[in-house]
Simulated assay, not measured.
Amino acid sequence: MSVDSDIISTLTQRAKQRPRRIILPEHGDERVLQAVCRLASNGAVVPVLLDAPTTDTATIPDNVEIFSRRSDAAQWRDRAAAELFARRAAKGTTAEQARASLDNPLLLAALLVGLGYVDGGVAGSVATTADVLRAGLHGVGLADDAHQVSSFFLMALADGRLLSYGDCGVIPDPDAEALADIAIATAAGHQRLTGAEPRVALLSFSTRGSAQHSKVDKVREAFDIVRRRQPSLRVDGELQFDAAFDPIVAQKKAPNSAVAGAANVFIFPDLDAGNIAYKITQRIGGAKALGPLLQGFARPWMDLSRGCSADDIADVAVIASLLGD
């Protein structure tokens, strides 16, 4: 079995144990409809569409929920409009404007996620990342312990190991507080998806004071913040990648470290490093990269690449299901 099929099969089997309701608002996209059919067939997720597709509706399985056909759809729209007004009134949004905004399917779906009508949402096969993030911020909102949205990749290595890389897709140059947020959120996401205890390495071009620079200071400060906020989390930094990944190097560079040589969560100091690293791991190392998986929202709200396949959409829906409460 390939790396791709092995990790997806494992995640799908786990999701089947407790299928969550995941909304996919871009029902006009044929790829979304294909993904919905796959999900409805394998039972990993209970897929929800805002409305029936305008063509070929007979291809949608009977066990796919169509929100607009529910007898209480109007009441849920009323609740969504009231919630949006409550969140945006201070910004000058009127009640009428809030209701009119629900014509945006992404925003309506995000509000239904935020209200708990569904367990999570997946969008972005048609909409831009900026639109998906905006809808998520307005509709789902941030988790209580989050200060911003970031992302991580679940990396399935060719030898079967699972690593998490953050942030590789959202925040270009996080400060120490943001880097600590990314570390804590990525550790939680890694544990939910893999079941393994997270061992977090805050990466740098320095290990334990081998270099002095303001960028190194940022990583050290982030480490202190993580330790203060999550004292039970196994974390170390600053560490170079080889010290974090290779046990032999770790013995030389960071003896007695809680994670050096055995890290499974790697936190990069900026988006340059993270984005380059995951692509090298994927293209040269032959790893399967699942993501970027958005984190920091109060409930799972996932973005897609507009070049995604139907299988990609279904896979992200499975991950959204597993990242739920």
Rank of each mutant, 00 (worst) to 15 (best):
D4F: 15
T12W: 00
Q13E: 14
K16G: 07
R18M: 12
R20G: 14
R21Q: 14
P25N: 07
H27A: 07
E30T: 06
E30I: 04
V32I: 15
L33S: 05
Q34M: 13
V36M: 01
V48A: 06
L50T: 01
D51M: 06
P53K: 08
T54G: 13
P61N: 10
V64N: 07
I66M: 12
D72K: 06
F85D: 12
E96W: 00
S101M: 13
G116T: 13
V118S: 05
G121E: 07
V122Q: 00
L133K: 03
L142Y: 11
L142T: 06
D144C: 05
F152V: 08
F153M: 12
L154A: 09
M155T: 05
A156I: 10
L157T: 10
L157E: 04
S164P: 03
S164H: 14
D167M: 07
D167A: 04
I171S: 04
D173K: 07
D175M: 12
D175V: 05
A178L: 07
A183G: 10
A187R: 01
P198K: 02
V200Y: 06
R208W: 06
A211M: 08
Q212K: 13
V216C: 03
V216Q: 07
K218H: 12
R220N: 08
F223S: 08
V226T: 01
V226G: 08
Q230G: 00
Q230H: 12
V235K: 04
V235C: 14
Q240H: 12
F241K: 04
A244D: 03
I248C: 02
Q251K: 13
K253W: 00
P255Q: 01
A258E: 12
A258F: 03
A258V: 15
F266E: 10
F266I: 05
L271M: 12
G274C: 09
N275V: 00
I276L: 15
G285V: 09
A287M: 11
A287L: 00
Q295Y: 00
R299Y: 01
P300G: 08
P300Q: 14
D303W: 00
D311Y: 00
V318W: 02
A320C: 12
